[in-house]
């Protein structure tokens, strides 16, 4: 990543970022044969750098398979990184062992995508919410009860929910439980991994509103991962667009939406469904198509096979992410 960006960012926002990711790479080996030699790698995250400042929400958008969820999980050290550094409040954690990570876990939490898979079906809501503080010695069995009650209040669940099991709740309610669990350790950073995409549309708005209220009340710092623009633009102050494991454009939300510089960003915005047919006039110059495999990314600019403006330079030379607050990785940015 271009060091200038960090420099500019730092001069404009004087404090140090809560989360800094430098050149992070997460590869999955493709194993073949009996002895499982790595025959190649899926480059899920391939050199991502970004800063997230206290109190802000950074949105990450991109198609399925672009590595955005893997990025979130790698930052939380749930996936092993291959290269790169992760700083949480200045402390480099990518090299830490899982044991060494444990005392840091309360500082960063995750809200999972699928509320049906992320809650242990054999535990009551009370146990789900009380276990983390007890395990970290933040509360004992008695004092944790008031904490659990407060969490339920925050996420808008009734006290009667406490002694029920996850399967007795609807998707939206379960996601509230998941949010309460993430808040149970009073984290500084929350990674929201597509927290509403598994929910009914009518419930999505409720959960987004809940997240927004919590964000304001608790001054949370979030990394908000989504594949669509809607949720991200509602909650984020800055947005990063990912394509095949890389950030192709990053900047303040208004700039990215109002004046996208990368052809892929524009494609992504244009593919957002519009309910009113009269508003459907739009730029159709960009082909939809599917992204290439992250196991074998194209040379040069990774977007060139789908890009209508691709030139020879795009096919041969990979563009660096460059620019100030609004940075783009494109040889011929739109404008």
């Amino acid at each position: 990543m271009n060091p200038n960006i960090q420099a500019t960012n730092r001069t404009e926002l004087p404090e140090a970022p809560l989360l800094r990711v430098e050149n992070l790479k997460t590869y999955y080996p493709l194993r073949r044969g009996t002895f499982g030699r790595a025959a190649g790698f899926v480059r899920a995250v391939d050199g991502v750098s970004l800063d997230v400042y206290r109190g802000e929400t950074m949105g990450i958008v991109g198609e399925s398979g672009c590595g955005k969820s893997t990025l979130g999980r790698t930052i939380l050290r749930l996936e092993p990184s291959r290269e790169g550094r992760i700083y949480l409040g200045g402390e480099e954690i990518a090299s830490y062992s899982q044991r060494r990570m444990r005392p840091l876990r309360p500082r960063m939490q995750m809200i999972f995508q699928d509320p049906f898979a992320s809650l242990n079906p054999r535990k009551t809501v009370r146990d789900l919410l009380a276990e983390p503080p007890i395990a970290h010695g933040l509360a004992d069995r008695r004092s944790v009860q008031s904490r659990v009650g407060r969490l339920l209040e925050w996420v808008g669940l009734p006290k009667t929910a406490l002694d029920r099991y996850p399967h007795e709740f609807s998707g939206g309610q379960r996601q509230r439980i998941g949010i309460a669990r993430a808040l149970s350790l009073e984290p500084e950073l929350i990674v929201c991994d597509e927290p509403v995409s598994a929910l009914d549309v009518s419930v999505q708005a409720q959960i987004l509103n809940l997240l927004k209220d919590l964000q304001e009340e608790l001054k949370l710092t979030c990394l908000f991962i989504a594949h669509g623009l809607g949720a991200v633009s509602y909650l984020s102050s800055r947005v990063a667009v990912m394509y095949l494991g890389k950030i192709v454009e990053i900047g303040p939300k208004e700039d990215l939406i109002g004046r996208p510089l990368h052809p892929y960003t524009r494609l992504l915005w244009n593919s957002n469904p519009v309910s009113d047919p009269r508003l459907r006039e739009r730029d159709r110059t960009l082909p939809a198509g599917d992204p290439p495999s992250p196991a074998n990314p194209p040379p040069g600019c990774r977007f060139h096979p789908r890009c209508p403006y691709a030139s020879r330079k795009c096919r041969e030379e990979e563009p660096p992410l460059a620019g100030g607050r609004h940075a783009v990785a494109c040889h011929y940015p739109l404008d």
Partner: peptide
Amino acid sequence: RAGVALGL
């Protein structure tokens, strides 16, 4: 994974 993320 949530258990791991919660530091249990």
